[in-house]
Simulated assay, not measured.
Amino acid sequence: MDITISSSFLPADDPEASLAFYRDVLGFEVRGDVGQGTMRWITVGPPNQPQTSIVLHPPAVDPGISEEERAVIAEMMAKGTYAGINLASTDLDALFEKVQASGADIMQEPMDQDWGARDFAVRDPAGNSIRIQQA
């Protein structure tokens, strides 16, 4: 049996800001953009991995979510504790310079971790935690 990751979902409360971050800063290509306004689902991914995507979606739009749950999701997004993803780059330092120059919210500059990885952490425009390690 061969299983691969096809897509991952991250909430995005400002589609234009999220699109600019993932496309213009991280260099992902846009694979889909459906809906309008704040009700947009934007699919992005690395150009050299067409089989792997991230879907940037409106948070808490499921009709089964209560108002109380929506408030919790909004609170967690504001803290940056609701969602995250780990990425890798072949040139961590160059990517960090580009991300930092974009004005993104840097959580941790590049450093060697105890577990062996060298990485940095940033929050995307929705507050999602993005850790990027040296590939």
Rank of each mutant, 00 (worst) to 15 (best):
89 S>I: 03
78 A>W: 00
98 K>T: 15
34 V>E: 09
94 A>E: 12
63 P>N: 13
40 R>C: 02
43 T>D: 07
51 Q>Y: 06
83 A>F: 01
87 L>G: 11
51 Q>G: 15
37 G>T: 01
63 P>D: 12
80 G>T: 07
56 L>F: 01
69 E>W: 01
55 V>N: 11
90 T>W: 04
81 T>L: 08
105 D>S: 15
64 G>R: 13
96 F>V: 03
88 A>M: 05
88 A>H: 07
89 S>Y: 01
49 Q>E: 15
81 T>R: 07
100 Q>D: 09
102 S>R: 10
86 N>V: 08
77 M>P: 09
58 P>I: 02
86 N>P: 00
83 A>N: 03
87 L>I: 08
59 P>H: 08
61 V>Y: 04
40 R>H: 00
53 S>C: 09
69 E>S: 14
65 I>F: 05
37 G>N: 00
98 K>E: 08
81 T>G: 06
43 T>C: 08
107 M>W: 03
109 E>M: 10
43 T>H: 04
30 V>P: 03
95 L>W: 06
87 L>D: 07
98 K>N: 13
52 T>A: 15
87 L>V: 07
108 Q>A: 14
97 E>G: 10
39 M>V: 09
68 E>P: 03
32 G>W: 02
103 G>T: 02
54 I>P: 12
74 A>E: 12
92 L>E: 02
99 V>Q: 11
43 T>W: 02
109 E>K: 14
33 D>M: 01
84 G>L: 02
95 L>A: 14
65 I>W: 04
55 V>P: 01
48 N>F: 03
99 V>A: 08
103 G>C: 10
30 V>R: 12
47 P>S: 13
51 Q>V: 04
47 P>Q: 11
43 T>F: 00
38 T>P: 05
56 L>G: 04
104 A>E: 07
58 P>N: 08
61 V>C: 11
103 G>K: 10
62 D>V: 04
49 Q>F: 06
60 A>T: 11
94 A>L: 08
85 I>F: 01
57 H>N: 10
57 H>K: 06
74 A>R: 15
79 K>P: 00
68 E>H: 09
